[in-house]
Amino acid sequence: MKERYEVRLAAVGGQGLITAGALLAKTAINKKNLYATQSPTYTSQVRGGPTKVDVIIDSKPIVFPQAVSIDLYFATAQKPFDLYYRNIKDDAIIVIDSDLVTKLPENDNHKIYKIPLTEATAKEIGNMVVVSVVSLAVVSKLSGLFTKDELREVVLASVPKGTEEMNLKALDLGFNLV
């Protein structure tokens, strides 16, 4: 990993992306012995408002906990994609849900991964609750930040009892989707 890696996940409230961000930070701290911060931004709507979460991973203590130079931008809906499309590095990776983010900015020269996240989660798992874990897996694989085994432990320690199997399936799905 580079000295510092900044991830921004943008979604609509209720998709669980703020949780995915928390798990990313937790994995960096617990499994990689790195510094990490997770700063959420949401709206007063419980569901449906454009949300984002900034995760910064660094080998040194982090002074300012919001993304200023994003390495990986991940968005699962058009409105949050448009709203939080800023401070993205020239060589950043952009990942979008190919069904829900359809309009991309003109002259965008980033490497863009279009992944049928929602559709695949609905089809393969049948429960949209785990879309956050699928996203976590996608981000981890594309960034090269964490292996499936590293995420496995953190996910198992964080999800409610009885949902372990479904969440592990979601992890597999995310790694296979890329």
């Binding site: 930070a25 701290i29 990490a36 911060t37 700063s39 959420p40 919001q66």
Partner: peptide, 9 residues
């Protein structure tokens, strides 16, 4: 808000 909501080690 940023101080209140940021999760950090």
């Amino acid at each position: 808000e940023l101080v209140g909501h940021s999760h950090e080690p």
